[in-house]
Deep mutational scan, measured.
Amino acid sequence: CHSECLGNCSQPDDPTKCVACRNFYLDGRCVETCPPPYYHFQDWRCVNFSFCQDLHHKCKNSRRQGCHQYVIHNNKCIPECPSGYTMNSSNLLCTPCLGPCPKVCHLLEGEKTIDSVTSAQELRGCTVINGSLIINIRGGNNLAAELEANLGLIEEISGYLKIRRSYALVSLSFFRKLRLIRGETLEIGNYSFYALDNQNLRQLWDWSKHNLTITQGKLFFHYNPKLCLSEIHKMEEVSGTKGRQERNDIALKTNGDQASCENELLKFSYIRTSFDKILLRWEPYWPPDFRDLLGFMLFYKEAPYQNVTEFDGQDACGSNSWTVVDIDPPLRSNDPKSQNHPGWLMRGLKPWTQYAIFVKTLVTFSDERRTYGAKSDIIYVQTDATNPSVPLDPISVSNSSSQIILKWKPPSDPNGNITHYLVFWERQAEDSELFELDYCLKGLKLPSRTWSPPFESEDSQKHNQSEYEDSAGECCSCPKTDSQILKELEESSFRKTFEDYLHNVVFVPRKT
């Protein structure tokens, strides 16, 4: 048989008469490798580009789960590009990614509803959504962080984005990388972005840091009482949809009607710091009717980097990364020049730590249904340095008659930039024990000054392991946590139920 035959053949030295091919099969003959313009397919066939392209389009058009959109890589027609490569849609070739590779997620039936953290986790790592997304989240724990972890990498949506009755959302900033909504599939009414009845939605994105392009379709905003109209108009300008909307697409009466839409800028007039305090004062603000001013709200939190936005980490279910302080308005003076500047002394802060701070007014709604208010920009203030805590785990070892090696770990709280350490030492008198000992005694162990690591005695271990207080009263049991108490109650309830079950099964009433 021919060298490319495997198993047997019907005619000697003829690659077209093989029972099976050793390498690849091409047009009725066995070959060692697939010549151009053919590609290896499933490690035994040679196919042309049209064959591989037909497989790709067949799966793409069917949208069946589990099928493969075949691509070409290293002269092979394979189910998908290997790690580190992405497909070129024009020629199906796998090309190296520039940075992290995109991950295209194809949605069944063309859309997916995100109504819980669990459903959001199914899209973790996706960068391109081939379909439409509907966000409908009523509640949950730590929602802002969970949504950002699972949806934060999405850069492109081919269909539309719909935010509907998501009472738990305060902001859409968890879509931190969303840059493009194509609108290839539109919501009824030709809408590519749809926001309806979101009672706590206050911000779409921080438009000073976020760009969003909507290729096709219109915007729809109705019944978002805490979303200011200025935020919607800003989205029109940034996304390129200005002029597409009709009169009733953006409701003037049901958007922002319960919001404090600040239209003035508060400026800080005085800032002073110490290692654990920050004193702030800002310019006074009074609405047209000074009785509408209820006070100020001061927001602050630790910020290692200057990239904080107002609604980071917030949701309507209680999660809030900001510390909020309510401040009463100052006494009002008739003389504008003698107006008191409101302020606040922030206490209990960490030394040498940068804080993000902003302040906003708290006002009631005027009778004319106009909203007044003022808010400052987010500023960054760093507390002063102070003395560091003591170095940890000092170790001293003498390696000769004239040297001592000293080692330690950095302090747990540096409280500033540590530039150097101060080492103090003092000579001590020799131990009298060394002169009084009889060095001729056998088995004498000389006193040693070398360091030995501390260890816990058996008594201390027994005390720590004991669940009861000892007789001397030195140790006591740790208080039980809520989960331990709940577990004990469940076990007790189970024992009672099981005992009742045994009584009912074992003891049967005697027939009379």
Rank of each mutant, 00 (worst) to 15 (best):
W286H: 04
F290K: 03
T309V: 11
F221L: 09
S119K: 11
N198L: 06
K277F: 08
L123N: 02
D384H: 15
P410F: 13
M346T: 10
L180G: 08
R347K: 11
F311Y: 14
K162Q: 06
S119Q: 12
S192M: 03
D326V: 02
W205L: 11
N130P: 15
C317I: 02
S401T: 10
T254E: 04
R369C: 04
W207M: 12
V359Y: 02
N136M: 11
I395G: 15
N211S: 08
E148T: 05
D289Y: 02
N142P: 07
R369G: 10
Y167C: 02
A385T: 14
A149T: 11
A374F: 07
E148R: 11
P391I: 07
D249R: 07
S389L: 03
Y270S: 07
R165V: 04
Q216A: 03
S321N: 11
E109H: 15
G256H: 12
I114Q: 00
G110D: 05
G183P: 02
L161R: 00
A251G: 11
T254I: 14
T213Q: 13
T254H: 13
V381T: 15
L280H: 00
G373D: 03
M235Y: 15
W282N: 02
G110Q: 14
F299R: 15
A251Y: 10
Q382D: 06
L227V: 06
R272L: 14
I250V: 15
L108S: 07
N248Y: 06
K301R: 11
L169H: 04
N399F: 10
V324L: 10
L180F: 09
K277P: 00
W205F: 11
G110C: 03
N399L: 13
R202L: 11
E187R: 08
Q354M: 01
T323N: 15
T241K: 13
T254V: 06
L227K: 00
L280T: 15
T113M: 15
R291E: 15
P287I: 06
L212Q: 03
K253D: 03
W282H: 11
P284F: 11
H106W: 13
C317P: 03
H233Q: 04
A145N: 13
I135V: 04
V359Q: 00
D257E: 04
C261F: 02
Y194N: 15
A374W: 13
R244L: 08
S321Y: 00
S158G: 05
A144P: 06
Y380P: 00
K277N: 10
C105K: 04
M346H: 09
T361Y: 14
S173T: 09
K267T: 08
T215C: 09
K409T: 02
G189S: 10
K360H: 04
S166N: 06
G313Q: 10
F299K: 06
D384L: 15
Q245Y: 07
